[in-house]
């Protein structure tokens, strides 16, 4: 009897979209009997969905706070493991026509700035970074997740947005990234955990292990993530 194909449902922050799609394919090379269903969104939305009973097997958050919500709800099978870190960058139009060089430029009146909403991790980190830089900038919109920020910049509606380094890397043809110096950086720590009661917990744990293994880490680093 051949073992059946098992479906593993992964809830992951939207900044992990490219990384997890590739990691899923990498994992499937050695585990042919698995298929992944990914649900990408803002980590806060995902945490809300899981605490309200959404059938996730794995949860990967872009911040520790939202993971903590699920921990507090006593819904995890084991402790969360840090598997990646991410850093912020300023996304601007290709070629940087507005000559934005630093966070301070985001306060310029001729710069249309969008941020993620302060309720989602990317928005919170962006505010932290601006605070570290001593910049008071007024966004014209607080988008629902970091991908929406990236889209507003790539559509040309906004001149700049604060996103993850990995977002810039995934959209090199549509946006240009401007580095944020180390002393103003905010490091986003990505924890991952298996959700309690998952009928596929064995497979789910193997996927988590794969992400922290050298193979998994290689994919993440290629996409711009750093090691935890």
């Amino acid at each position: 009897m051949t073992p059946e194909v098992q479906n593993v449902t992964v809830f992951a922050g939207s900044s992990l979209t490219d990384a997890f799609t590739r990691a899923g394919n990498g994992f499937a090379k050695t585990n042919t009997r698995v298929r992944f269903t990914f649900n990408f969104g803002s980590s806060s939305t995902l945490a809300t969905q899981i605490t309200n009973g959404a059938p996730a097997d794995v949860f990967a958050s872009a911040d520790e706070g939202n993971m903590q919500k699920v921990v507090d709800a006593n819904l995890l099978d084991g402790a969360p493991a840090a598997f990646a870190t991410n850093r912020l960058a300023i996304a601007v139009a290709p070629g940087n026509p507005k000559k934005i060089a630093a966070l301070a430029d985001l306060a310029r009146s001729d710069v249309v700035l969008v941020l993620a909403a302060p309720t989602v991790p990317a928005g919170k980190y962006a505010l932290d970074a601006l605070r570290k830089a001593g910049v008071i900038a007024k966004p014209v919109s607080q988008e629902v997740d970091v991908r929406a920020v990236l889209n507003k910049v790539s559509l040309g509606e906004a001149d700049a947005g604060i996103v993850y380094v990995t977002d810039v890397k995934s959209a090199t043809d549509r946006v240009t990234g401007v580095d944020i110096p180390e002393q103003q950086q905010v490091v986003a720590r990505y924890p991952i955990a298996v959700v309690k009661g998952s009928p596929k917990s064995a497979l789910a744990h193997r996927f988590v292990d794969y992400l922290v293994s050298p193979d998994g880490q290689k994919i993440l680093v290629e996409l711009g993530f750093s090691k935890p």
Partner: peptide, 13 residues
């Protein structure tokens, strides 16, 4: 609204 006008408290939220 969220696609065209964005989301800013007091302005478009």
């Amino acid at each position: 609204t969220i696609t065209f006008a964005g989301n800013l408290p007091g302005t478009t939220q």
